[in-house]
Design a protein around this nucleic acid. Sequence first.
DNA 1: ACGCCCGCCTGTAAGC
DNA 2: TGCTTACAGGCGGGCG
Length: 286
Amino acid sequence: MKGKERMPELPEVETIRRDLQGEVVGRKIKAVEVRNGRTVRRHPSAKHFRARLEGHTIKTIGRSGKYLLLGLDDGETLVIHLGMSGQLQRAKSIKEPKAPHTHAIITFTQGGQLRFVDPRTFGEMFVSSAPVDGGPAVPELAHLGFDPLEDVMSWEKFWVLLSSHKSGLKALMMDQEFVAGIGNMYADEILFAAGLRYDRLSNSLSSQEVRRLYRSMVEILAEAVKHRGSSLADGQYRDLFGGVGDYQGQHQAYDREGQACRRCRATITKVKSGGRATYLCEHCQV
DNA sequence: ACGCCCGCCTGTAAGC
DNA sequence: TGCTTACAGGCGGGCG
């Protein structure tokens, strides 16, 4: 058994967003404790980060790609990225024991805490200033491409975007500046569903292939959200309450090296692409 | 513009 | 058995 680490991608982050909506909207931040400064590395100091949160109430929970956006009553936004191994935990009481690698703790006036746990410390939190009128909501995230679930578009528009690039399909689907929220795992699942190889050039697709790719992207991600994301046996993804997702049971390619393709029974193979593990069915994906 | 590599990290697992 | 090395990968930056 090979150890696989999965980071939260769009479906996992969306699951957490929905849970946060019911759990922290309307709550006022009483205190913020930063236990690992790397988590708030965009700020000049942990104190600076704290000062911009304490005393403010959380009004909205949004998401852009893999980023969570907690809107505050002063118009600023608490941005959270879970990186590779980040988790948000809702503690009902401050007395609940802290998990190892708990790097930041937000305590609410109404009781309870929101905790940021992240062994690998690739994740981060930062407060973004209120947008100036006409400007982007979060300037730090202005580079992100469209969100596949939030920003619905015609497949013809998608075709225009796709063919304006000349790169391997997997690299492009994982390029956050092209489309935001897809990581290594869902890229493989989407390309399997579309019947397309990871190394097909983005400007080489027929109209039918473009339609299949767009539809697969939306359907796979939406279906994974319905299943509350993917938590493989040794994976780290947990939701706000420590629960797991079950979309991994639907996986067709990712982490299935040596197993039979569920469509044609050929063997799923694993190759390296751009330094990343890539799983595919050589027979179904052309 | 694009592909590829590195560094940042830690836990797990494979290799010797 | 125990130590060392490889691997997992999002993201930003660099290089060819």
